[in-house]
Amino acid sequence: MQNTDNRYARLDPSALSADEISRPSVSYWQDAWRRFKRDKLAIFGLIVIAIVALFAIFGPMLCPYGYEDADFFHVNEAPSAAHWFGTDALGRDLYVRVLYGARISLSIGIVAAAVNMVIGVLYGGIAGYFGGIVDNVMMRIVDILIALPSLLYTILLMMVLGRNIQSILIALCLSSWVGTARITRSQVVTLKHQEYALAGKLAGASDFEILVRHLLPNAMGPIIVSVMFLIPSAIFSEAFLSFLGIGIQKPMASWGSLANDAIPKLTSAPHQMFFPIAAISLTMFSLNFIGDGLRDALDPKLKK
């Protein structure tokens, strides 16, 4: 007797593998990187920043002029083969000064963001983890700090510390960690009741270990995004202060102070203004694009 019921037909062997996981599993960070790579603007920003950084590091070495070499026979010159970006009122080469400005701006951005990340993450982490009265007191302090524009504190601190690159850094580091602290706190508050934190506690881990080894790594995505936006805001604050003439002091140059020096000759020698503001605009654009890309990659829920 022939079996005509095709319900019992042999299965195609390829169907058996349908349940198998055919691709390697992707971690959070690999997934984020995959999303980030797809963002063309963010990649563009990354490339621009890499180029600016390379020029800032190696450019001055390859340039025949120093940033304070005055040449009184060639003042206020337009861009030429000898001086790519022209010269300023004292005959100093603008190209090399813009490159030194890049060094100052980028290092201020990176150092301020790093220090702010450490302060903000620890502060917010402690407030969020311990909760109760600790949290209440610490967050009221943050509320007070956030109620006023941070540039006001920065200016006040600069007055006391003196006008140089170190005091700009200290002032920026002391005044702009509050945003990171708030984000870290809200992350830690939601994460601390997760099972793995409880498991860690049962295994005998100290509060500090649970916070640093278990909670903070899981809160890293939003923290990195907020720190990434601190870099352009630190660069902006430095440029703001230097543009007002209360930041970097002569003969040092930053993009803000170069723009400040160029104001009186805005109509007669506009190139002196053009190069520093082009450099800062390009950098700000790129950093913001990277930040947007990171936010979309690390925090897909936020994407609009």
């Binding site: 352009p232 902006f236 440029a239 703001f240 543009f243 803000g256 723009a259 104001i263 805005l266 109509t267 506009p270 203004m273 503001i277 800062i280 605009s281 700000m284 654009f285 913001n288």
Partner: peptide, 16 residues
């Protein structure tokens, strides 16, 4: 552009 570019850059450009 408005969000990224610092105020003093915009002011200088408009002034110029």
């Amino acid at each position: 552009i408005g969000v990224c570019v610092p105020l003093f850059v915009i002011s200088v450009l408009l002034l110029y």
